[in-house]
Design a binder for these strands. Structure first.
Length: 274
DNA sequence: ATAAACGCCTGACGGC
DNA sequence: TGCCGTCAGGCGTTTA
């Protein structure tokens, strides 16, 4: 389901409802949704944790926690990765569990934080070592580190197809299938182009495109596709993604669908030459 | 180092 | 109606 803009939207929505709350109990309804630690340790360690902050890194949601129990130890972090079909929302404490609820955390004030995930690909981590979860990620697209020159230098450091490299979270954090297709179209670059053949001018265009497309996604509260609808509207503004056979908004040529790195890929054959 | 194939899961959709 | 293949916002492992 979610890429950077969708996760950012969820973080912004949950933040005011969660910060200041205390986690009372955990109801783990699908064991494999928990990446680490063991279910026993998780239930023991999560209990009584105060939520200090709600943030996002790449496609991970991060709840920064604190407890009075181990003031000398490192604070815990709860990470959630929604993968393809995960969602995270607040309910009332007495809400009946839904079919695909995988983890339910009861909070103070009769609230419940629910991790619902139809396809069971999503994962949750509770750890006092954040680097073990998010340590290998590339830069955030909106960070100062991510500059046109950085993108140019690092594209040329690899000999990869452009799209799979952009999807690689250790290269750049946060892009997924939708925003990669949209960014490449906006930059007029072909997804199969070799990363080390990209010129400086093209890297500059791609840098601008990535930021512009992600910013629009965030501004429209993300995209809601398939059966998952969370209120985002970016799906109504796709230029190429899921628009096979429809006209390119720039030149009216029919959008083509191809497969790149086992992912459905959408290009305008006229705007995006190899 | 790169890339393809496959696994993990459930559900929607189109064709017959 | 049902059955079947295909596809889906992700990513880790295995294999070439």
């Amino acid at each position: 389901m979610p890429e950077l803009p969708e996760v950012e939207t969820i973080a912004r929505t949950l933040r005011p409802a969660l910060v200041g709350e205390t986690i009372l109990t955990a109801d783990l309804r699908w064991a494999r949704s928990l990446a680490s630690p063991s279910a026993r340790k998780f239930k023991e360690q999560i209990q009584g944790q105060n939520i200090l902050a709600v943030s996002r890194r790449a496609k991970f949601l991060n709840l920064q926690l604190s407890t009075l129990r181990e003031p000398q130890g490192r604070p815990f972090n709860l990470f959630v990765h929604l993968r393809m079909s995960g969602d995270l929302y607040i309910k009332k404490a007495d809400a009946v569990p839904e079919k695909h609820d995988r983890l339910r955390l009861t909070l103070s004030n009769d609230k419940l934080l629910v991790f619902n995930d139809t396809r069971k690909f999503g994962r949750v981590w509770l750890t006092d070592d954040p680097e073990s979860v998010i340590g290998r990620l590339g830069p955030e697209p909106f960070s100062d580190e991510f500059t046109p020159q950085w993108l140019y230098d690092n594209l040329r450091r690899h000999h990869r197809q452009l799209k799979p490299l952009l999807l690689d979270q250790t290269f750049l954090a946060g892009l997924g299938n939708i925003y990669t297709d949209e960014s490449l179209h906006r930059a007029r670059l072909h997804p199969l182009a070799a990363s080390d053949a990209v010129k400086l001018k093209q890297a500059e265009r791609l840098h601008e495109a990535i930021r512009a497309v992600l910013a629009e996604g965030i501004r429209r509260n993300g995209a809601s596709i398939d059966w998952v609808y969370r209120g985002g509207e970016f799906q109504n503004f796709f230029r190429v993604y899921d628009r096979e056979g429809k006209p390119c908004p720039v030149c009216r040529t029919k959008i083509q669908r191809l497969v790149v790195g086992q992912r459905g890929t959408h290009v305008c054959p006229k705007c995006q030459k190899m």
